[in-house]
Structure formats: C-alpha cells, structure tokens
Simulated scan of single mutants.
Amino acid sequence: MSGESDLRKLLTGMRPELNAGCYVFTTVDDGVVPVGVTPVVTVAEREGLTLVVPQREADAAGLAYAYVAGWITLRVHSALEAVGLTAAVARELADAGLSCNVIAGFHHDHLFVPYERAAEAVALLEDLARGSA
C-alpha cells in the first residue's frame, strides 16, 4: 500500500486531527521503558532512548521533561519519499511562531506542537489545506 507523493494532494488532503491529551518528550539512559509508560514514539539515540509519552504517564513514573505538546496527526497517507509536506507544514507553523516536532510514521506524519497552541495549529493547517486546493 503506497502513500501519496503529490504535494498538492498531500496538502489538500492532510486533514489534521488533534489527538486528546498532553504529550511530553523525555529520555531514559538505560533504554528501558518504565513500567506503566506506553510511548507513542521512541527514538534510539547515542545519549539514550527518547520517549514521547502521555504527560500523566511521565508524571506517574517520575520522568523529567520540559516541553508539553499537543499531538496532531495528518490523516493523509503520505509516502515516505514524498517531498515538501514537512517543509510546507513547518513553514506555516513557523510563520505563526509555533515550534513543531515532526515524526514520520509509515502511514502518517505526526506533529508535536506547544500544547497551549495546538488548536491554533490545527486551524492554521486547515487553512493551508483549503488554500492549496
């Protein structure tokens, strides 16, 4: 099942969806995910295992974090080799002063933006989709 690679189709069909809850980025040095923590993303780095987890789970496990994010899923099935979607989305959000951490899954792109501005980010992306038609 291949994803879409045409930038215009990706932008017009992205259908940003805000997932419920607050998410945080944290790390564990030993690579062991604590009991009771279910990451939505993991990234293995030389310095440790990065986890993106629900904030309530990080708090319960005593994990340190500094950035609380809202999680937006772009519902379009983007091809991993597609060119320009990440750049267009990041530019739109950057122009509004929003940080954006992008993680590509096999089927969808996932954006982590400041939690308190997540709804605004979704509205900006919806406007970008409409303007790309």
Results as ranks from 00 to 15, higher is better:
G3T: 05
E4L: 02
S5F: 12
S5V: 07
D6F: 00
D6E: 10
L7R: 00
K9Q: 15
K9A: 14
K9T: 13
L10I: 00
L10G: 10
L11M: 05
T12Q: 15
T12N: 13
M14W: 01
R15W: 03
R15I: 01
E17L: 11
E17G: 07
L18M: 05
L18P: 02
N19V: 12
A20D: 12
G21H: 02
Y23P: 02
V24I: 00
F25K: 09
T26S: 09
T27P: 11
V28L: 01
D29Q: 15
D29E: 15
D30A: 03
D30T: 04
D30W: 03
V32R: 15
P34M: 09
V35D: 15
G36S: 06
T38I: 03
V40E: 08
V40D: 05
V41D: 04
T42C: 11
T42H: 00
V43I: 13
V43L: 15
A44K: 14
T50F: 06
V52D: 01
V53E: 04
V53D: 09
P54Q: 08
P54I: 06
Q55W: 07
R56V: 02
D59Y: 05
G62N: 00
G62V: 01
L63D: 01
L63F: 02
L63A: 03
L63P: 06
A66V: 10
A66K: 13
A66I: 00
Y67P: 04
Y67I: 09
A69M: 03
G70I: 04
W71N: 06
I72M: 08
T73L: 01
L74K: 03
L74R: 03
H77K: 13
H77Y: 14
A82R: 03
V83E: 14
V83F: 01
V83T: 12
L85V: 05
L85D: 10
L85Q: 10
L85P: 00
T86K: 15
A87G: 13
A88P: 12
A88Q: 14
A90E: 07
A90Y: 07
E92F: 00
E92R: 09
A94L: 08
D95W: 07
D95A: 12
G97T: 04
L98S: 04
L98H: 07
S99H: 00
C100I: 11
N101G: 04
I103N: 11
A104L: 09
F106N: 09
H108I: 06
H108D: 06
D109G: 06
H110D: 04
H110K: 05
L111R: 04
F112G: 07
V113F: 05
P114T: 04
P114E: 06
Y115G: 02
Y115V: 08
E116F: 13
R117Q: 14
R117I: 12
A119F: 08
V122H: 10
V122D: 07
V122N: 09
E126W: 10
E126Q: 13
E126K: 10
D127K: 15
R130D: 13
R130I: 15
G131L: 14
G131T: 14
